[in-house]
Amino acid sequence: MKKIIKILFFAIIVRPIVFVILGLNIKNREKLPLKGEAVIAANHNSHLDTMVIMSLYPLSKIDKVRPVAAADYFMKNKFIAWISINCIGIIPLDRSGASSQEELFQSCHEALDNGDILILFPEGSRGVPEQMSRFKKGLYYMIKDRENTPIIPIYMQGLGNSLPKGEALFVPFNCNIDIGNSITSFNNSNDFNQQLKNFFESSMR
């Protein structure tokens, strides 16, 4: 049932907005991981980021793609929580610091073990439109012990102008997307974040 709701939501609402109203220019599309387990690490400028990445997937695979999102924001009221869980299929993440690291990532690990594709935003928040914030270390701690999980960086440009943080006015612009090579080996969190940053900077025009 959940799967049907998600497919309908993307087929009827999200994909027309993403492909007709926005329009995508996709570079290196073949690098998109079509099979789990995998982690997508993207820059974050807008609520549209998640919708655009998920729209890159065929509808038949969409229930395997799951964004990891802040519980305090997306679970704050019943309506948004229902949409987040049923239409988008988020994995809520507790940012309050109350849970231990193991508890924190437990549902992420379960999803990855289940062959899902997770979407994470290492910047944490959407921040200033069209500007890169400093990366958090959460993603590194989550994947450092999972040697077989490929991490694929995706850079998106333009969505911060379409629907920036704190604004309700939606203005269509084309979105440029660049998909990078998977990051496989890294020494520590700084090294990992540096590799991500290098890819994002090389994709900027």
Binding site: P129, F173, N174
Partner: peptide, 11 residues
């Protein structure tokens, strides 16, 4: 849309 997306605009 294409024109406004390729040129530099102020936010």
């Amino acid at each position: 849309k294409e024109f406004l997306s390729i040129i530099q605009i102020r936010h």
